[in-house]
Design a protein around this nucleic acid. Structure first.
Length: 215
DNA sequence: AACTCGGGGCA
DNA sequence: TGCCCAGAGTT
């Protein structure tokens, strides 16, 4: 994709979604962190369903510690992978209370040092909670970048580098959110909605096949 | 690099 | 039924 095509690609994403808001719960940086940890290999819909009642009771690390692992599991069981996630969230909350005065550190290394927080989670928290222009390449963005030709790459790090190189500065802050939603609702894994896609004339996959992907 | 964790949604 | 989901930790 040429630089002009990339610019146009982002221009359309921005037009489609002028005021991007995370679909995960962001009452404060802590609830966002917990939401993103819970989102690993889970759908944001299932996470929101579980965290809506949880965050009415708990929205600080101290309250989470007081809630305890067993009662936390009752809230998040429907999400899946709940044993590891509950243990990590309790442990992570202890660390926030003891080392960070109950605050979420706005630092990638500090975030990645927390149990249950890896590279992607850290980058998403920095982006959404602290307005850093980070792009975390998850399954959606990896697929979108490769399929459309926006930022091809064989592994996550290659796509991440490609996106950093190609994404215009003015779109950097919201790029992650736009690409995620584009992948989730339009450029879907199974049945991409090419017939109503506003990027199909720029898409490498469409160019290759000559016809919009569908079925 | 290859497991393992995991219930829910969807075709 | 089988595949996928805003991945991370361990071996």
């Amino acid at each position: 994709m040429t630089p002009d095509s990339v610019e146009e690609f982002y221009r359309r994403l921005a037009k489609d979604n002028p005021n991007p808001r995370s679909e995960l719960v962001f009452k404060n940086p802590y609830t966002l962190l917990v939401s993103v940890v819970l989102s690993a290999q889970a759908t944001d819909v299932s996470v929101n369903k579980a965290t809506e009642p949880l965050f009415k009771i708990v929205d600080t690390p101290q309250q989470m510690v007081d809630l305890g692992e067993d009662r936390l599991k009752d809230y998040i069981r429907s999400i899946g992978l709940y044993n590891n996630k509950a243990k990590n969230i309790i442990a992570l909350s202890h660390i926030l209370v003891e080392k960070y005065q109950g605050q979420v550190p706005a630092d990638q290394k500090a975030l990645e040092a927390l149990p249950g927080v890896g590279r992607k989670t850290a980058l998403v928290v920095l982006n959404v909670a602290f307005n850093r222009p980070t792009i975390a390449v998850d399954t959606h963005i990896f697929r979108v970048a490769n399929r459309t030709g926006l930022a091809p790459g064989k592994d996550v790090r290659a796509v991440e580098k490609a996106l950093e190189d190609v994404t215009p500065e003015k779109y950097r802050l919201h790029a992650h959110h736009w690409l995620i939603l584009f992948g989730r609702y339009i450029c879907k894994a199974r049945k991409p909605e090419c017939l109503r896609c506003f990027e199909s004339d720029l898409c490498a996959a469409v160019k290759e096949t000559g016809i919009p992907l569908q079925s």
